[in-house]
Design a protein around this nucleic acid. Sequence first.
DNA 1: GCGACAG
DNA 2: ATCTTGTCGC
Length: 294
Amino acid sequence: MLGVVVSQQLEFPKGANPCLRQYNYIGGGGGFKNVVLTTLVYLTEEDDCPFHSREQGILKDRLITSNTETWQNIPDFHGLDRIGGVDLSYVKEDDTSACASLIVLSYPDLEVIYEDCQMVTLDAPYIAGFLAFREVPSLVEAVKRLQEKDSRLMPQVLLVDGNGVLHHRGFGVACHLGILTGLPTIGVAKNLLQVDGLENNESHRGQAKELQSSGDFFYLEGSSGNILGAALKSSQKSVKPIYISVGHKISLETAVKLVHSCCKYRVPEPTRQADIRSREFCVKTTNEKQMPQD
DNA sequence: GCGACAG
DNA sequence: ATCTTGTCGC
């Protein structure tokens, strides 16, 4: 590591390629002392991405992992009217194109009241532990569009495909999106990310098997002693649990109850609708492009 | 070479 | 994430 992050303001040049990021560091070489150096860094698979790790660490300091909204402490979540879900669907054979979607559902009816699907260009590759650098820019844009189009429909909490604090450095995509938007967020993953000693081993699968009815869950405690998330049997039919972790501005206990309350199937309705609709839009748009004679 | 690897 | 058939069950 060449230096220390000097600037905690993570303002990047407007319209800059999110994959090519600019960091300010303290440099001390060549007779200069304490000069601020600007370093341009791409996210690549060749190293452990120390710069992006550092950026996650800076943003993590702003994370709030407890309830901040009044409805979160009310048993039936009275006061919660709108819940959002986000997802990206990828174009096959093209790792730079995707459809980003933001769906808002009424609560507790779970009817779709807002849908935004948009084809986007991705700037960063997928690297485990750095999913947010690939997906979050398009999602922030979607939230901004909603803010401008009809801010009354802004969701009061956002479910995100992927993890929150259940992450290599405790700052997954759900946390990242929460910090960048200021919205309460929850991470919902379909597979256990094996970090901090957590393993999808015989012991874990044994615990999962003990989950009897819908709503049963167990906490995921890492080797560090931290409770990183929960494995939830989200519907009566599903055998494989889903993995809930705090993103931002909500407690794990509340997050688990809330996610379960919007599960008609294994995947909670907000992210399920985002997934279905973004995939649909992606296929439709890709076909139109191939057959312009229509 | 082998296992891991959110999406 | 995506590539993919059939099959079991309601």
